[in-house]
Design a protein around this nucleic acid. Structure first.
Lengths: 191, 191
DNA sequence: ATTATAACGAACTGACTGTTGTATATTATA
DNA sequence: TATAATATACAACAGTCAGTTCGTTATAAT
């Protein structure tokens, strides 16, 4: 994909630009951040920015893709294990590992669809697993149910990250599973 | 609140600006739409725009607030009925009534938090109803569960609107209820 | 030490912003 | 219908930013 190794200066420049964008994203959303602003923050010539990225959004995408790839790889074994529960937990653990970055990415100024992209890694496996449970496999309805649970899960994780990831990842994963599988019912009066 | 009646010219100007913004929102998001662009579309002087709105976002907020108010009022009676199920259905029906507008507002270029705002009308009532079902009322957990179901519901409705609102509102409301109360379990093999 | 190239600095065009001042048109109403 | 109020149009302003170009300087790779 990439050339064997980038020039040391290039690596440094990209690193600074990356950090500068993330710093700015603590205060405002990507669509309010200008190239000029990033370069001011980074103390780097605007020209140099354009020689590496076409826009702030382009820079953000490269940051997101790198994080996505990292998370995807760290859950690869769980994907093979065919175990949704383990997969969910692995995702949460990966998020903890990249805590600082995730806190920015999942904040109000972050990309709201990025986390959804991660959760959707589990899509095919979930649908398949669900289908194995039932005979009347109404695919359309299961897809709709996946939309429901995926978006619910995203919201839970987002809330969890934004409030400092206090509860352990395993607990969050278990909560999501309960809510997905049994809904309100799972949280009613003691049996 | 408002003066008794606005000048006829003002009413017309605002209407045109509103329609022009919505027209543009079919193609791009609010943060990419400039005042200049709206005025070009509306064939109205930029000056005039600024005498009514401070920004495209300001205009959008006024559109949203009006829609929000309309929906809120039409479900007011359901709120009194203390019936979450009826409330959900009423929300879906209101959306159908404002179909064209909602299709824009809930699209990819729309405001992703607006629908969430509507769903959250049901927040207090839901939590209260849930609490009445259980003795061990762990409020924090119920709040988390509400986050889960609310965001799942928003996604379902969004999907429903974007795909042309083919299924009747009652059916959508019922699906959401099933998913919220029983999760996957509700859709498994026939009993 | 030499060569390649990354980063810088300055300058340019074009677009849009938010504001001001003035002229023109339309409305409300007496 | 004449008059006063005011909404809109038109024109011009300084300021910011976007991308791009070109020549210079600095730094890395070999």
């Amino acid at each position: 994909m990439k050339p064997i190794k980038e020039d040391r200066r290039v690596r440094m420049t990209k690193l600074i630009l990356r950090d500068s964008l993330l710093e700015l994203m603590k205060k405002k959303s990507i669509n309010k951040i200008t190239p000029t602003e990033i370069c001011r923050q980074a103390d780097i010539n605007r020209n140099t920015f354009y020689s590496h990225y076409s826009s702030p959004y382009d820079l953000l995408m490269q940051i997101e893709n790198a994080l996505y790839e990292e998370i995807r790889q760290s859950i690869e074994q769980s994907l093979k294990a065919e175990n949704i529960s383990a997969l969910l937990q692995e995702i949460c653990q990966s998020i903890v590992k990249n805590g600082e970055l995730c806190r920015i990415m999942f904040s109000d100024h972050g990309d709201k669809d990025f986390l959804k992209r991660i959760i959707y890694i589990a899509h095919d496996k979930s649908i398949a697993e669900w289908k194995s449970f039932t005979r009347h496999s109404d695919t359309e309805q299961l897809e709709l149910l996946y939309t429901f649970t995926a978006n619910g899960s995203v919201a839970i994780i987002q809330d969890w990250v934004q409030t400092g990831m206090k509860t352990p990842p395993g607990e969050i994963a278990r909560f999501i599973e309960k809510a997905s599988n049994h809904g309100l019912e799972a949280f009613l009066s003691p049996r």
